[in-house]
């Protein structure tokens, strides 16, 4: 009985010490993960700012006109877009699915 009590006491001491040590270990782990999280959050914010900056309308317009040689469409330009050409020509042309994209982005100067 005595031996059992001593062993139980030792076990309790061991569990107590182990719990304290493990708490400190987990504490360090949490802190490391927090630092990692902060670094990742910084990267995320940086990428978000970069994305927003790179997708700015004035930058895209500048790239389109200066680098890619694109220009704003002229007045009344109509672009007919057919989503998917059919393999066999339809007999009834009036029922052909057709979308009309009317683009008004003129660089008109009055």
């Amino acid at each position: 009985m005595k031996i059992f009590t001593i062993l139980l006491g030792l076990c309790l001491v061991f569990v107590f010490v182990w719990e304290r040590v493990d708490m400190v270990r987990v504490g360090y782990q949490i802190e490391r993960l927090k630092r990692d999280k902060t670094v990742l959050e910084r990267q995320r914010d940086e990428l978000r700012v970069q994305f927003s900056s790179l997708s700015a309308s004035n930058r895209i317009a500048k790239l389109a006109t200066e680098k890619l040689g694109m220009s704003l469409p002229q007045h009344g330009q109509l672009i007919l877009v057919q989503s998917r050409p059919s393999v066999t020509p339809p007999t009834d042309l009036a029922s052909t699915p057709m979308r009309v994209a009317r683009n008004y982005l003129p660089s008109r100067r009055d």
Partner: peptide, 11 residues
């Protein structure tokens, strides 16, 4: 009203 030009798909 928009006047549609009819396009004949290539066969």
């Amino acid at each position: 009203p928009v006047t549609l030009a009819m396009a004949v798909p290539n066969s």
